[in-house]
Nucleic acid binder design. Structure first.
Length: 808
DNA sequence: CTAGGGTTAG
């Protein structure tokens, strides 16, 4: 550094200072070209200034402060600022900008407000308007815009671009945008590339608003694009991504094909557009072409293409890309590592390789929230809730996605209470407002618990929070109302939704099927096909169950065959299970066995369970024993098999076999899930066990039940004591029947709920045969509707009949 | 000193 050793004669001082100033200015300029700005370099230059006793003039100091801000040292820069006797407008604007981009809009405004009017300029207004736009204060931007015009500051192209991006935060922004467009044309900036780009971008945003016809606005955007005198990279990408955002891949591709530059951003946008639309092949094809044209991949390309592999479970393709990255990418940046590793986590877990996903996660030296959320999803997806929970607790800064994944994860694994607990915790968590997905999770939790009151409250809150039109939340409402026994409310949600996806249809079809309306389920399925909604695997599972419950054998078989013939879906074991169930319920055992033998895989649990269930209905003991034996081998600890088999023996009065089975359970240590039923009264859940003595009002319930049974017997009710599995005297048996938990819960509801109100009772396992019969008579005696949801389905008793048509 | 595009988690 030769200049430091120059002789310091008086004459030379000014020269030295000038030389130093030039030197530092060029150093700082060099530094500002680095991205991101390195804070150590800035500190070094500053230290050098102090060491050489150089007192920077304001423009050098301004640049220094700007660099400090950009390298993350705003606080220190502010100290320098506060020491300045009269900071000029450039210094002030530096801080307005710095505070704005670090999210501290208040501080930015403070600097702006303490800036005297006579030194303000358009630039400082621009800086604060941008700050408003970035910190979601659209109205603030508009106020500043009006203010600057009042004080005669002329808006320039920066002002217009910032305003346009800020406006979309304001209600009814479309009309504001039109005004602004007029003003831009009048101001003569209507042909400035950056301004037209911003206009295009705003038209694109308007087009995706639900209240307009998108093609008209996209047409206007396209016109602007076609007529602009000079297009830069951004112009191309804005219009291309605009089309993609509005689901118009055709036009996106059209513009893209007219583009000469090898603009990596445009390629990435199109790739991710294809992936989102499910056109994985096209995405892979573009990736290949990029490679041929020697366009450099960046992290966006990789995340796009890895996402494509993940969504189609193309494990080997994905692994190849992973290997390619390892071989070719040297010195990856932080951002590169974040996004690519996160995409790899998702690739591996979606391909069923949880271990590999975990390896990627563990090897990441630094993780961001997406990494945590991705690994959380992986564990939730395979149902490892405890592990997922321990990840969840480790996540330092949770966002609404973290919460909603965990909430719906609990709900999907039957942990309704935990789901609701988390939802309430989320609300008390400072920076996390529930989003529509977390509402959906909480609503499904209510479905699991069959808590209608709570579910209705959440529905109300959902509307209050403005998520009424959310697909996922509405879909969860359909399921919740159905599982709480109020099918009509499911239907009214379904009917009033303004957009439906396959989940909506599946949920509604399933709801009808579970409530025993097989015919209506089939009608709705046919309507779905008519509206060109492509049925998926789930659709077929639900429609097959519906046919089975409604005894629609031929129909069900036809749907089963159409899966592979028309929709290219290979039936899985679960589909075969439903088909076997359908056949066995109808007593077609020969066909069922024939189907099992022709299946492309060895029969497993779902198949044998379906067979056993059918045998129980038709008293086919030989086949039933065979199925039960297989199940004893496959799932020896499952209580359901033993109970079904012992019920079959009981039906035939073979009490020695009944006790043999019970003995088997004891020897093998199989625990019978204790039966319990519950009912919601006054926002409280009341649980009853068999022969309950714990509930405070149980004595009243027994007495009332006695009166009811007396009246029921007059109508012809005969207690069916074969459902008592113990060998005891008849009178005792009758008493044992009258203490079943579902009877207690129903009776309690009749006592406590307002007259005429529907009774909704829930039982953890299948309803007992005598109770099923008894409720028919009971509904007649009390003249009320009784709905019972058991482990599998719904029974709606009205005027002596059950909706299940005795298919249960 | 001020503006604008592509990405991964449901």
């Amino acid at each position: 550094m030769t200049i430091l050793n120059e002789p310091t004669t008086k004459l030379n001082i000014t020269n030295t200072i000038r030389a130093l100033a030039n030197f530092y200015a060029s150093q700082l300029l060099q530094c500002s070209k680095q991205s991101p700005t390195s804070s150590s370099t800035v500190r070094m230059i500053h230290a050098h200034m102090i060491g050489s006793n150089f007192r920077p003039q304001s423009h050098i100091l301004n640049r220094l402060m700007d660099l400090y801000c950009k390298s993350g040292n705003i606080t220190y820069a502010r100290q320098l600022f506060d020491e300045m006797p009269q900071p000029d407008i450039v210094a002030r604007t530096t801080f307005i900008t710095a505070y704005s981009s670090s999210g501290e809009l208040k501080l930015a405004r403070e600097v702006f407000n303490t800036t005297p009017l006579n030194i303000r300029d358009t630039v400082c207004y621009n800086a604060l308007i941008t700050g408003c736009a970035h910190n979601s204060d659209g109205n603030g931007a508009i106020e500043l815009f009006c203010e600057m015009k009042r004080y005669d500051f002329r808006p320039d192209n920066y002002t217009y671009t910032s305003m346009l991006s800020g406006l979309s935060l304001v209600a009814e922004y479309e009309s504001h945008c039109q005004q602004l467009h007029c003003e831009i044309v009048k101001s003569g900036t209507g042909f400035v590339t950056s301004v037209v780009n911003a206009l295009i971008s705003v038209y694109v945003k308007c087009a995706s608003s639900p209240f307009v016809v998108p093609c008209l606005l996209m047409g206007a955007a396209r016109k602007l694009f076609d007529e602009m005198p000079y297009k830069d990279e951004l112009s191309w990408t804005t219009i291309i991504t605009g089309y993609i955002r509005n689901d118009d891949l055709y036009n996106a591709r059209d513009v893209f094909d007219g583009m000469n530059e090898k603009l990596v951003v445009a390629w990435n946008a199109l790739i991710s557009g294809y992936v989102h639309k499910g056109y994985v092949f096209q995405a892979l094809e573009m990736f290949r072409k990029m490679h041929l044209l020697e366009i450099r991949f960046d992290e966006f390309t990789y995340t796009g293409i890895l996402g494509a592999c993940a969504s189609s479970k193309l494990f080997l393709h994905g692994k190849q890309v992973h290997g390619y990255i390892i071989r070719t990418v040297k010195n990856p940046s932080r951002d590169f590592l974040f996004s690519v590793n996160n995409a790899l986590i998702t690739l591996y877990w979606k391909c069923g390789k949880l271990e590999d996903a975990r390896k990627i996660f563990d090897r990441m030296l630094i993780r961001d929230l997406v990494s945590w959320n991705s690994i959380l999803c992986a564990y939730v997806d395979v149902g490892l809730i405890e592990e997922a929970m321990s990840f969840f607790n480790e996540i330092p800064e949770k966002n609404e996605l973290t919460w909603s994944v965990m909430i719906s994860g609990c709900a999907q694994n039957g942990l309704g209470e935990e789901g609701l607990k988390l939802f309430n915790q989320m609300r008390s968590y400072n920076n996390c407002q529930p989003c529509d997905y977390s509402f959906a999770g909480a609503i499904i939790s209510c479905a699991v618990l069959a808590s209608l009151d709570h579910g209705r409250q959440l529905h109300a809150q959902l509307i209050q929070s403005g998520f009424e039109s959310s697909l996922s939340a509405s879909n969860s409402l359909i399921t919740m109302y159905a599982r709480c026994g109020v099918l009509q409310d499911s239907q009214s949600v379904f009917r009033t939704m303004n957009a439906l996806d396959s989940v909506s249809w599946n949920s509604m079809i399933a709801a009808l099927g579970q409530h025993g309306h097989g015919g209506q389920a089939v009608d709705l399925f046919e309507q779905m096909l008519k509206e060109d909604i492509v049925p998926d695997r789930i659709t077929f599972l639900t429609i097959l169950s519906s046919c089975s419950h409604a005894g629609l054998v031929d129909q069900g078989q036809r749907y089963f065959n159409s899966m592979s013939e028309l929709y290219n879906i290979t039936p899985g074991e679960d589909h075969y299970g439903r088909l076997i169930d359908l056949l066995c319920r109808a007593g077609k055992f020969t066909e069922a066995i024939d189907t099992i033998q022709k299946m492309p895989f060895n029969p497993g649990v779902p198949i044998w369970e379906a067979l056993l269930g059918g045998c129980r209905i038709h008293g086919n003991i030989e086949l039933g024993i065979e199925a039960a034996e297989k199940l004893f081998e496959l799932i020896p600890q499952h209580d359901g098999t033993y109970i079904l088999l012992s019920n079959m023996y009981a039906d035939l009065g073979k009490w020695s076999d009944v006790s043999r089975i019970r003995n088997m359970m004891r020897v093998r240590g199989v625990k019978k899930e204790p039966a319990c039923s519950w009912i919601e009264v006054d926002n409280m859940v009341h649980v009853f066990l068999v022969d309950d003595t714990k509930h405070p009002e149980v004595q009243k319930v027994y007495k009332y039940l006695e009166e009811l049974v007396f009246k029921m017997k007059k109508l012809g009710y005969v207690p069916d004591t074969k459902y008592v599995l113990h060998d005891m005297e008849n009178e005792q048996k009758e008493y044992a029947l009258s203490t079943h938990s579902e009877k207690l819960a129903v009776a309690y509801g009749l006592l406590r709920l307002p007259s005429g109100a529907m009774i909704r009772v829930f039982k953890n396992i299948r309803i007992c045969g005598d109770c099923h019969n008894a409720f028919k008579f009971m509904s007649q005696v009390v003249g009320r509707v009784i709905v019972v949801r058991d482990g599998k389905r719904f029974h709606r008793f009205e005027n002596g009949k059950c909706s299940c048509g005795n298919y249960w």
